[in-house]
């Protein structure tokens, strides 16, 4: 923990982006998330940490209703994005997911060309009117994904031909291409080597300027490096949620302290 990179901890914007109240998730008989309240601030990186099976990924997937795809999963409680209840019947999950992008644990590019990977989202949502516009979005997204220089000469190669780290940055670029407001990242670096991890972390810090980023991570160092806010989950409870500096230097709950000092998890 001593080699923790010092990054700016101040949260400039305090606009509330996501407000969750009393969220409960059941997987069949299992009660996976218990009464979680979280406020996620815009243009901030919020990290969810906690031991395996604590529900941090499950909670993340509530934020873009990816849990809808699991038939035995039941979500209750209130989750508002910009003041609108996302579980409301009037909200189409398709629209929600265009607004809330997601990057998965394992890089999962489509087995299509790099160009088509990025262009897919804008195409299905009809974000562009011309090929030139689409080209522009693709280039912009790849640049924001910090992978443009590596792939600009081979946009027609398959996305799966890239290395793991490149694939993950491609997936981030793909998520950005639909111009979301929130970016969810489910352990985005767990399948990457340290160099690729560093690149992705740099990218996450970069993305904070425009997006509200929520990242689930196993690595406390990573949470400390990239996030301004940290939430510690344990056994389905949100134990502690505070500024990252506070969590790591002055945890209020004994369980948080045990976890960050390596006694549980």
């Amino acid at each position: 923990m001593n080699d923790m990179r010092k990054i700016e901890r101040d949260v400039h914007m305090t606009d509330l982006k996501i407000k969750a109240r009393g969220v409960n998730v059941h997987y069949g008989e299992t009660h996976a998330i218990k009464d979680v309240d979280v406020d996620i601030v815009d243009k901030t990186v919020t990290a969810f940490i906690g031991p395996s099976g604590c529900g941090k990924s499950t909670f993340l997937r509530c934020l873009n209703r990816m849990n809808d795809t699991i038939s035995i999963c039941r979500v209750t409680g209130q989750i508002e994005i910009d003041g609108r209840d996302i579980n409301d019947r009037a909200v189409d999950p398709v629209q929600l997911r265009a607004q809330v992008g997601m990057v998965f644990q394992k890089p999962n590019p489509f087995p299509k060309s790099i160009y088509d990977n990025i262009a897919y989202g804008p195409r299905i949502h009809g974000l562009t009117k011309s090929k030139a516009e689409l080209d522009e979005i693709v280039e912009k997204s790849l640049r924001r994904g910090a992978i443009w220089d590596e792939v600009k000469d081979r946009l027609n190669d398959s996305g799966t031909s890239l290395s793991g780290g490149q694939q993950q940055r491609l997936c981030i670029a793909r998520a950005i291409a639909t111009q979301p407001e929130v970016l969810l990242m489910d352990e985005p670096c767990s399948a990457l080597d340290p160099i690729a991890t560093a690149q992705v972390e740099e990218l996450i810090d970069e993305l904070r300027r425009d997006y509200s980023v929520v990242i689930v991570t196993h690595s406390m160092q990573q949470a400390a490096r990239v996030s301004q806010k940290t939430a510690f989950f344990h056994l389905g409870h949100l134990v502690e949620f505070n500024n990252t500096g506070e969590i790591f230097t002055n945890p209020q709950d004994s369980r948080t302290e045990s976890y960050i000092t390596g006694r549980i998890g």
Binding site: M66, F104, N108, F110, G121, I124, A175, T178
Partner: peptide, 23 residues
């Protein structure tokens, strides 16, 4: 077909019909 492909498409906001027929 790996579930990761379905998730990738769903996560981008593809409808289920689009996920099935396009991926």
């Amino acid at each position: 077909v790996p579930p990761s492909i379905r998730e990738a498409a769903l996560g981008l906001g593809a409808s289920r019909q689009q996920v099935v027929f396009q991926h």
